[in-house]
Each structure stands twice: as structure tokens, then as C-alpha cells.
Amino acid sequence: MRTAFAFATALLLSATSLAHAGNSDAEVYTYGTELDIASVLSIKLEPTPFCRVTNAVMTYRDSTDQVRKLSYRTLSESCKTEN
């Protein structure tokens, strides 16, 4: 439940000026981007010791079995331990 909420929050907090977190081949998520995610292979977050919005890149397989990357904004891992 918490993971689903974090992922939904990540998608809602996306911005068009998002840095690609070192992955120039990643598609930048914007509101209305149609997602075709069959399975998630990895999620990488920019590390930060503070609870704040940060960049993330999700690597996934779509329904045609192609590996794709999507960059988006999300809350940092530090937020998991804060109220």
C-alpha cells in the first residue's frame, strides 16, 4: 500500500524540467503520459539525506517485452522514516 502511494505520488510530482538523473535515454514523465508497464525491473533514486522531492528513473518492460526507462520526480527514501 505504501509503495503504491509512493509511486502514485512520484508520478503526480513530476515536472517537465526534470533532470534525467544521468539517464539521457529515459522518457520524462509528464501528466497524461500513457504508461504501458508489464513489469518493473528497477527504480533508482538520487540519494539525499533529507526528506524532499528528488529525481528517479524506473526501468521497466512494456507489453511488447521492450525495456524502457522513465524519469520522474518522487519523495526521497529519507521520507520513509519521517511522519
Rank of each mutant, 00 (worst) to 15 (best):
K69D: 05
D36G: 13
T74D: 14
V28Y: 05
C51V: 14
F5R: 00
N23Y: 12
T3A: 15
A15K: 09
T30C: 05
V67S: 15
E27M: 15
D36T: 01
A4G: 12
T74M: 05
T64K: 14
L11A: 06
K80M: 05
D25N: 02
T81W: 07
A21R: 04
Y29C: 07
I43V: 07
N83K: 12
L45H: 07
E46D: 09
S78A: 15
S63M: 06
T81Y: 04
S39Y: 03
K69E: 08
T74Y: 11
Y72K: 00
A15F: 09
D62N: 11
G32Q: 01
A10C: 10
T48E: 12
S24Y: 06
E82K: 11
T16Q: 04
S24V: 03
R68A: 03
Y31A: 15
L35C: 00
E27V: 15
A19S: 12
Q66C: 08
E82G: 04
N55E: 14
N23S: 08
A56Y: 01
T54H: 02
M58I: 12
E82L: 13
L41S: 01
A6V: 14
F7K: 08
S76N: 03
A10Q: 03
Y29P: 01
K44E: 14
E77Q: 05
Q66M: 15
E27L: 13
L35F: 00
T9E: 12
E82I: 06
S39H: 04
N55H: 07
A26C: 02
C51Q: 05
V57H: 08
